[in-house]
């Protein structure tokens, strides 16, 4: 049985962020090795400013109340927790170049890599998830 979980975060909305970080922190708490590859809009989740202003899908804004009521942790809190649990963050170099971003625009402790970096990790991971 593989002890590795590989996640691709490719979308940048608030709902997408919860899917990524809930699975990632739950897996890390279950003593799995977890790596998340952030690409395109997924980079929002670890961007120092953007992570605080993630948007809900159009027309779903009314869920804000539900998030508050359910006492769901904020995305910056989940990011911090994931780091604390040892989850590895890989930011996609190509997307960073396209968007004109540098490592300093992101939370501390991330790694920067390309598609091969992720593929190498994911080759024996189960499951590999894309959000």
């Amino acid at each position: 049985m593989s002890n590795k979980v590989a996640i691709i975060a490719a979308n940048g909305g608030l709902f997408d962020a919860y899917k990524v970080f809930n699975i990632a922190t739950a897996a890390a708490a279950s003593e799995k090795e977890v790596q998340i590859f952030f690409t395109f809009e997924g980079l929002n989740f670890i961007h120092k400013q953007a992570m605080h202003a993630l948007e809900m899908p159009a027309g779903k804004e009314h869920f804000a109340e539900g998030f508050k009521k359910a006492n769901v942790p904020s995305i910056p809190e989940l990011v911090e927790m994931a780091i604390e649990l040892g989850v590895t963050f890989i930011a996609c170099q190509m997307t960073m170049d396209v968007m004109g971003l540098t490592k300093e625009d992101f939370v501390d402790g991330i790694e920067v890599g390309g598609a091969v970096t992720f593929l190498e990790y994911a080759k024996d991971a189960a499951p590999t998830l894309t959000f």
């Binding site: 739950a26 708490a29 006492n71 927790m81």
Partner: peptide, 14 residues
């Protein structure tokens, strides 16, 4: 109490 998924698991692990 009052915490939602995945917090109970994360707290339990700690």
């Amino acid at each position: 109490k009052g915490l939602s998924c995945p917090m109970p698991i994360v707290k339990t692990k700690k």
